[in-house]
Design a protein around this nucleic acid. Structure first.
Length: 1001
RNA sequence: GCCGGGGUGCCGGAGUGGUCAAACGGGCAGCCUUUAAGCGGCUGUGGCUUAGUGCCUACGCAGGUUCGAACCCUGUCCCCGGCACCA
């Protein structure tokens, strides 16, 4: 039979379709098997050999499992939303829908020509309304469950995509689609999905998955769990929260007043100003004898500077007027500090001279009230403070060392208690895996990229910090890895909760801003990075774990605690627990777990995706679109060009609020397409369902996916999102499995002949249609599957395919001319052994090895005198999963009515496998070798003679022809004891078991 | 730096304790078939040696374990992929 592959391919592809050969049904008695390749993004350029490689791999498996008697679900769909279509639309002026539909048509055509056995009835496209409707449905369900939220935060923005990106889509600080584009951090309000809610389960299940090790490791790293402690450090000087401080006392600002120049208020003012806090100290009228009206005038002057972040400090005689005025204005402030309110308790002053009155509302105007008092009973200091305290509440602090007058006349002394109240230390949680080293903290480092950095930068240090940041920003991404640890002092200090030591805070380039709290406690003695930093800036290094030599390097190992007060001598592991307990007791820390995994940012500022079904209403806030109004369809007629076209489509954007009916605005963001691809495999199970995303029963029948095939590039994107989805859907009782993909196979990449990844721009793309036009797709399938293990990267080779073509041609032309009859025992042994091995190989994806064995089997069959129909058919069946068209044709020519694609996989009869035949082969092999070897020494040899000991005779006799062929000489075989043998040189004497004597002439 | 995978003949790529100078394919060479080309068949393809033998050198490099190592262990170099100062 001449091999006319083109007509054969067409014929059988058509037949499969007509006979609905590959349609999967739920009501089968067979065991189910669900196999898929990751569905593709239908790119405009169609599919090349690399895609084909992927699909053929899955098809071989699907065909195999089908023949093995499983009810196989194997389907194809298209991840048809996404940026490229939109960009193409902008460029070429085609609507993304048209662009996508065309691309899909082309894809389907190409895929069909590869002979893939998909159940096309189950095909889906994510850009269809009846698919993305369910995206919206699920989004809303997630929202109901509190898994969707909107948050303003620093997000990754790619200027080329013109949209934000999820964490997973940032590679080395660059966009996953644009290697040349650095991702910017923008502060934007975006939709997030709480993937972190499932971080633990996502991590814990990993070991149970039958996935490639490297993918599992990648996911583990990505989730990045580490256990440790959260410790609260008091951090001073959070100065953007205090916009100003108003100090109220007469003439504190009056430079001529020598007495007041020495006053503590001057010092406080100076210190605060150094920290960048604005201080107003109005020039008050002489309190003695002045009236409230006079004071009020002065207050009015600074009134505009007083706001919710202000701190007001009143001292002594000014206190009462201040409180009164505050009450009158109704202003809200952050804090009111009254220092030594004086003689208020005295009824005489109270009513006449000071016109004293505490407005009831003051309490609600002030967040925090602190009253300092002296311990001076005699001068009524305590008494007046009490009057204020009774009316206002708040904190009452008695200064033990200062009498009333002493306080007033403190001269050049600082007033630390007051400073403490003003600088208002904030508690920063920091994360550490080494709470045992907390006594060794000698400085803190906050990330230079931290959004709250400037809250702790003092005015004095601002310039230096600015400069440092400028330097960091100018560092290229490439140089980041070689970067030395650098930093700059922020001017602020923190308090170590364990020993109350005051430690400086630095801003550093080596601290990750969005991990933990973005600040670390630095233990230079026991962390290499901290050590390097400390050396560079000459900071203290305090050893707290014994066992290393900290003069040279940080000691990061375990050991006994030293310099750690009551925890000394504890083993470091043990100390962790104890220190955490101590911190918990003080409410200054706790045991925690940190993840690298971030919540999934799902909103995208682009058109070609699923609209997020939300409405913004001025009155009701964010209102989800009711289920009955789904889908929120994408408007078809929009203007592309600048930004997100949805934003400018007023007709679409303006919508009635579903709650109150007033005019609201639609959310114009669309969903990340990874949302679409997180559950498409569920929709295959029930792709026509109009009422639900999918029927639970059907999904429960098919899921989990038994074999998933796809590239490693999705290790931390699609594969994490999909796993997350399944867990949520399970908790929503929509299905019953916890993991979507039981087995995962990572195919290798097909490289072009030049060794590089196939890409259009490189021009090394091999198209399936080119190859199938020349050799037929069956040849291409065999070639692709036989190059190497399918999980390895392989290189296309134009000459390599010739070898596969030779084989396909050989058997396609040879099978029908074989003599059907009875297989020899030896052939039967070979066939059954091959069945056994090939079956095992395919199950383990050793496609290449399986093909080799099938080739060897065919060569063997070819040489046999005759072959049984059953054995020949076994061979064809096995080969059919690789070369379905030609095998279908030969099968039919062998007068089979059913399709070979639906035939039963051959069964290996192990009883027929006989190891003796292998010995026989070895004997033949050895004789051929010997004969050829001798042939080299005998010029013009015409004939060969072999003298064989009688018991070996059978082994050679059956292979006589093969031997002749292989030595390319005529051969005569004699038994050594044959008296009539021709043996001019007596070579028969050399014969041994397994080693005949030979003679050439 | 950490994690994962690798380094095998002219090339692609099997082999993971003896049966290995190493499957299978490609390339190349020789021979056969053929009027010729093509196709096909056979043989060869580390070195030396030999009437079918024997030896040496080889599986990144260097050591080790073992009666025996491409394969196990240790160290080292290089390549690929992932993460990347994760506290």
């Amino acid at each position: 039979m001449a091999y006319n592959f083109q007509s054969i391919e067409k014929k059988w592809q058509k037949t499969w379709e007509q006979k609905k050969a590959f349609q999967a049904k739920e009501n089968s008695k067979k065991k189910k098997y669900y196999v898929l390749e990751m569905f593709p993004y239908p790119s405009g350029s169609g599919l090349h050999m690399g895609h084909a490689f992927n699909y053929i791999m899955g098809d071989v498996y699907a065909r195999f499992m089908r023949m093995k008697g499983f009810n196989v679900l194997y389907a194809m769909g298209y991840d048809s939303f996404g940026l490229p279509a939109e960009n193409a639309a902008i460029k070429a002026g085609i609507h993304p829908r048209k662009f996508t539909e065309d691309a899909i048509k082309n894809f389907i055509k190409q895929q069909k020509s590869l002979g893939l056995s998909y159940d096309w009835k189950r095909m889906l496209k994510t850009s269809d309304y009846d698919y993305y409707k369910w995206n919206q449905y699920l989004f809303l369900k997630f929202y109901e469950r509190g898994l969707v939220y909107r948050k303003k935060s620093g997000v990754n923005f790619c200027s080329k995509c013109d949209t934000v990106l999820a964490n997973e889509q940032v590679k080395n600080g660059r966009c996953w689609r644009h290697e040349d584009t650095e991702v910017e951090i923008k502060q934007l309000e975006q939709w997030f999905i709480k993937t972190t809610e499932y971080a633990d389960e996502l991590l814990d299940n990993i070991p149970k998955l039958d996935w490639p090790e490297r993918i599992k490791t990648m996911q583990e790293n990505w989730i990045g769990k580490s256990e440790g402690a959260e410790i609260l450090f008091e951090v001073e000087n959070t100065n953007n929260k205090i916009s100003n401080v108003v100090i109220v006392h007469g003439s504190a600002d009056d430079k001529n007043d020598k007495e007041y120049n020495k006053h503590w208020m001057i010092w406080i003012k100076k210190i605060l100003e150094e920290k960048g806090i604005k201080v107003f100290a109005p020039n008050m009228p002489e309190p003695w004898g002045s009236t409230y009206m006079a004071w009020k005038k002065e207050f009015e002057k600074i009134s505009n500077n007083i706001n919710e972040n202000s701190i007001l400090i009143g001292h002594s005689r000014g206190t009462a007027f201040l409180v009164k005025w505050l009450g009158e204005t109704g202003k809200k402030i952050k804090k009111l500090i009254l220092v030594a309110p004086w003689k208020i308790a005295d009824k005489k002053y109270k009513e006449s001279f000071y016109d004293y009155k505490i407005n009831d509302s003051v309490r609600s105007q002030v967040k925090d009230i602190v009253i300092f008092t002296s311990n001076d009973e005699e001068k009524d200091g305590k008494k007046s403070a009490k009057v204020f305290h009774d009316s206002l509440g708040g904190k009452l602090i008695e200064l033990k060392d200062h009498g009333h007058y002493v306080l007033e006349d403190m001269g050049t002394k600082e007033f630390p208690e007051l400073l403490n109240e003003i600088s208002l230390t904030e508690k920063w949680p920091i994360f550490t895996t080494r709470p045992d080293t907390v006594f060794g903290v000698t400085f803190m480092v906050v990330s230079a990229q931290h959004s709250k950095l400037y809250e702790i930068v003092s005015a004095k240090q601002k310039k230096e910090v600015d400069e440092f940041l400028r330097k960091i920003r100018s560092t290229k991404q490439e140089d980041m890895d070689k970067l030395e640890k650098e930093g700059v002092f922020t001017g602020s200090y923190a308090i170590n909760p364990m020993n109350n030591e005051k430690i400086p805070i630095y801003a550093g380039n080596f601290v990750v801003a969005d991990y933990g709290s973005g600040m670390i406690m630095a233990v230079p003695a026991h962390d290499q990075r901290d050590f390097e930093f400390a050396k560079k800036y000459n900071l203290k290094i305090k050893e707290v774990i014994s066992g290393g030599d900290i003069a040279k390097e940080a000691y990061t190992g375990a050991g006994k605690l030293i310099n750690s007060k009551e925890f000394n001598d504890l083993d470091s592991e043990e100390a962790k627990e104890h220190i955490i307990k101590a911190l918990e007791y003080k409410k200054l820390g706790k045991k925690t777990v940190q993840y690298k995994l971030r919540d999934w940012l799902v909103s995208r500022q682009r058109y070609w995706g699923t609209p997020i079904p939300m409405v913004y209403c001025a009155k009701c806030g964010i209102v989800p679109v009711p289920e009955k109004d789904l889908p929120v369809k994408l408007p078809e007629k929009v203007k592309f060009g600048k930004g997100n076209p949805l934003e400018t489509d007023e007709k679409w954007v303006n919508v009635k609020c579903p709650k109150c009916g007033k005019l609201g605005r639609r959310e114009t963001d669309t969903m990340d397409t990874f949302f679409d691809s997180s559950w498409y495999y569920l929709r295959y199970c029930d792709n026509k369902n109009k009422k639900k995303p999918f029927d639970k029963k059907k999904v429960d029948y098919w899921m989990p996916l038994d074999q998933y095939i796809g590239g490693a590039e999705h290790a931390v994107m699609h594969l994490i999102y999909a796993r997350f989805f399944i867990k949520v859907l399970r908790d929503m009782k929509m299905l019953n499995v916890s993991e979507p993909f039981a087995k995962l196979f990572n195919q290798g990449m097909l490289h072009g002949e030049d060794g590089f990844v196939m890409s259009k721009s490189r021009g090394n793309v091999v198209l399936p249609e080119e190859i199938s036009g020349k050799y037929g797709i069956d040849t291409a399938r065999i070639f692709l599957m036989s190059m190497a293990f399918p999980d390895k990267d392989i290189q296309w080779s134009d000459s390599g395919i010739e070898g596969s073509y030779r084989f396909v041609k050989k058997f396609s032309e040879g099978v029908l001319s074989l003599k059907l009859g009875k297989s020899s025992n030896r052939l039967e042994s070979k066939v059954n052994k091959t069945i056994k091995n090939v079956t095992e190989d395919i199950m383990e994806f050793r496609y290449n090895i399986a093909i080799i064995k099938l080739r060897q089997l065919y060569y063997f069959i070819e040489q046999s005198v005759e072959v049984s129909r059953k054995d020949l058919e076994s061979f064809l069946k096995m080969l059919s999963i690789y070369a379905p068209h030609i095998c279908e044709e030969l099968w039919r020519k062998l007068e089979n009515k059913k399709l070979i694609s639906l035939a039963d996989w051959p069964f290996a009869d192990e009883g027929k496998i006989d190891a003796n035949f292998e010995r026989e082969e070895e004997l033949v092999e050895s004789l051929v070798n010997d004969l050829n070897n001798v042939k080299k020494f005998v010029e013009n040899a015409k004939k060969a003679y072999a003298y064989i000991i009688p018991q070996d005779l059978g082994a050679y006799a059956g292979n006589f022809k093969e031997i002749e062929k292989r030595i390319n000489l005529r051969l005569s075989i004699f038994a050594v004891n044959d008296s009539k043998k021709y043996d001019p040189q007596g070579k028969s004497k050399k014969a041994k078991p397994g080693k005949p004597g030979i003679y050439l002439e």
